[in-house]
C-alpha cells in the first residue's frame, strides 16, 4: 500500500512538472523549451509525417504574424472562441489573435474565430496566428517547431528532408527566464528523486519481512526458482497491477479531464515504475540469496 501511495506521489509530481512546463510554454509564446527554431530558404511543400507537431512560420521582421501548420490533433493554447469552429477542419482560412494584437495584421480571407485567453503571456497577447491549408514559403523563411513528444529534430528531418535548414539558437522568454521558476522545477525533480529513494527503501523493508517465509520454503525443499516465483507473484504482481491501474487512470485523466500539451509525464511515470520493478526484482533476488546462504539452514 505504501508503495502505491508513493507511486501516486511520484506521478503527481511528474504531472505538476509538466503542468508548470505548459504554463512556461504559454508565457513563452507557446514555444516549449525543447522547441527548435530554424531557417529554410527553399521549400515548396512539407513532407507528410505521422508525428504530432505545431509549426510556426514567420518573417523575422514581423514575428508577431505567424502562419501555423498543425499536424494531427494538437492542443492549442486557451482560446476564447467568438465563432464555434472546428480547428481541425481546414476548408477555410481562419485566425486566432491576441487581445492586444493589431486587427490590421489579419490578412483578407482569414476569419477571426477567437482570442487567446492567456492573460500572463505578453507574447501571445500581441500575436496573430493564421491557420490555413496552403503552405507558402513566402509567408516567412523562419520556422519554430514544437512537438508534444519532444522529437522535433527527427520531425524536421522528415518534413524538410529535401531542403537545407540552418538552426537558430534562440533564447527563451516569459516565465522560463525567472530563476525562481527554474528552481521550482529543480525542487520537483529533487522530490521525485527523494520519492524514488523512499520507494526503494519501502521495497527493502517489505521484502526483508519475507526472509522467514523464504527460509521456511527453503527448508521445506523448494528450489530457488520456486521461491522466486512465489515471492514474485505475491509481492510484485499486485504492485504491477496497481501501477498499471494508476497509468490507465492517468491516461484517462490526460485524455478526457485535463489534457496537457505533453504526454511525457506519463512516459516518465512508466519509466519510473519500470525502474522500481527492476529494483524490486534485484532486492527479491538478493533477499533470497542472502537468506538461503545463511548458516543454520538445512535443505532436506
Amino acid at each position: 500500500m505504501a508503495l502505491v501511495c508513493f507511486n501516486l506521489i511520484c506521478i503527481g509530481l511528474l504531472w505538476a512538472s509538466s503542468y508548470i512546463d505548459e504554463i512556461n510554454m504559454i508565457n513563452n509564446g507557446y514555444k516549449d523549451k525543447s522547441s527548435i527554431t530554424f531557417r529554410v530558404d527553399n521549400v515548396t511543400k512539407l513532407a507528410p509525417t505521422r508525428h504530432k507537431y505545431i509549426l510556426f512560420q514567420y518573417d523575422p521582421e514581423m514575428p508577431k504574424i505567424k502562419h501555423i501548420v498543425l499536424n494531427r490533433e494538437i492542443k492549442l493554447p486557451p482560446i476564447t472562441k467568438i465563432i464555434d469552429y472546428d480547428i481541425n477542419d481546414l476548408n477555410q482560412n481562419f485566425a486566432i489573435i491576441g487581445t492586444e494584437a493589431e486587427l490590421n495584421d489579419v490578412p483578407e480571407g482569414y476569419r477571426i474565430i477567437g482570442y487567446f485567453n492567456t492573460p500572463n503571456s505578453y507574447l501571445l497577447n500581441s500575436e496573430v496566428w493564421l491557420i490555413s491549408r496552403n503552405f507558402d514559403i513566402n509567408h516567412g523563411r523562419e520556422f519554430t517547431i514544437n512537438a508534444p513528444n519532444h522529437d522535433e529534430k527527427s520531425i524536421i528531418n522528415q518534413v524538410f528532408k529535401d531542403s537545407q535548414y540552418n538552426m537558430i539558437n534562440t533564447e527563451q522568454r516569459g516565465s522560463y527566464l525567472l530563476f525562481s521558476n527554474r528552481l521550482l522545477s529543480l525542487v520537483i525533480q529533487l522530490c521525485i528523486v527523494l520519492t524514488f529513494i523512499i520507494l526503494v527503501m519501502i521495497s527493502i523493508v517489505r521484502i526483508s519481512r519475507e526472509k522467514y517465509m523464504i527460509r521456511v520454503m527453503h527448508l521445506y525443499g523448494c528450489t530457488v526458482g520456486t521461491i522466486f516465483r512465489i515471492v514474485f507473484s505475491y509481492i510484485l504482481i499486485p504492485y504491477l497491477m496497481l501501477s498499471a491501474l494508476i497509468i490507465i487512470m492517468s491516461l484517462l485523466f490526460q485524455t478526457y479531464i485535463h489534457p496537457l500539451w505533453s504526454w511525457v509525464w506519463i512516459s516518465q511515470s512508466i519509466y519510473i515504475f519500470g525502474s522500481i520493478t527492476f529494483c524490486i526484482l534485484i532486492i527479491i533476488t538478493m533477499q533470497i540469496v542472502t537468506t538461503i546462504s545463511q548458516k543454520g539452514g538445512k535443505r532436506f
Partner: peptide, 17 residues
C-alpha cells in the same frame, strides 16, 4: 500593457511557486 502582463506573469509565478 505588455509590461503589465509581465508584472501579472511574475505575480502568478510567485503564487504557483
Amino acid at each position: 500593457t505588455a509590461i503589465n502582463t509581465i508584472i501579472k506573469m511574475t505575480e502568478t509565478n510567485k503564487s504557483i511557486l
